[in-house]
Design a protein around this nucleic acid. Structure first.
Lengths: 137, 137
DNA sequence: GAATACTTGACTAATTTAGTCGGGTATATA
DNA sequence: TATATACCCGACTAAATTAGTCAAGTATTC
């Protein structure tokens, strides 16, 4: 079981913005320098964050990104959802005849994975970006 | 984030044994047939389960595997541990100068990942193999 | 002694992930 | 209005991981 860095980076970058956006939009260049994340990779991540209405972008010379919600209303689960970070319940194949097909012939672990997924989601839903930033001050 | 099938297979196979070992040791061949898992892959998994004292093996013509503990004392966390299924807190590199080095310069997500790991482990520690088998009867 | 079933390490193919590249477009400011 | 900055976007690549196979055993029972 593994957590990908895409989700981690997204959280780090947004926390960075939360810290510094009093002055104005925060550029990926700055985030990259402060957090040590490749700027090209950040671009990819922010594309998704923008599509999911987590950040606004401002183009041009003093441009950058700003948070749409304020940090206490931004749940970590929203962030992970935006960058496709999710628990995969792995290969309960709908068309297979033996093993679990996700319907009547439920494999014994099927419910377990479902429960775990809920368990983890709850964890991230209880935490906002503000919680994170505060914890690390 | 992803759960591998190795862990899932291990749980399925052990649950299968729990169901059928009243008669005697359960062979991988039988598990393979009932659960639809490749027998060669099962061999790999059971090597690890044996090394971690979760199953006993009996060779020869009526051989197979038996559980060492009874199902109510076998925690799912033990099973996952045995087959190397674990939450990875990803790349907080001890020697990197920028970003998180796991020591003083903790990245903002570091604690979060630690907490999540504990959260998930707790989930699996609260569940025994018996719980699983019962739920699906 | 033959069949069955566990033992073990090495190998391979497929998938996923992390990260890069190239070529854009928009905008502020000098 | 030129230009530098910074966002936009799709395609690509390399590395790592995972799922699963192969080959060549050894032990045990009937």
């Amino acid at each position: 079981m593994k957590l990908t860095s895409k989700g981690r980076y997204a959280v780090m970058a947004l926390a960075d913005i939360a810290k510094f956006d009093a002055i104005g939009p925060v550029s990926l260049r700055d985030i990259s320098l402060r957090q040590g994340i490749s700027i090209l990779y950040l671009e990819q991540i922010f594309l998704k964050l923008k599509k999911h209405n987590i950040v606004n972008s401002i183009r041009g010379i003093n441009g950058g990104y700003t948070l749409i919600k304020n940090p206490e209303n931004l749940k970590l689960s929203d962030i992970f959802k935006a960058v496709d970070e999710k628990v995969k319940t792995v290969s309960c194949n709908k068309n297979s005849k033996k093993g679990c097909n996700g319907k009547s012939n439920k494999c014994i672990t099927h419910n377990l994975w479902d429960e775990l997924e809920i368990h983890i989601n709850t964890f991230f839903e209880k935490r906002s970006l503000r919680d994170l930033v505060n914890n690390n001050k």
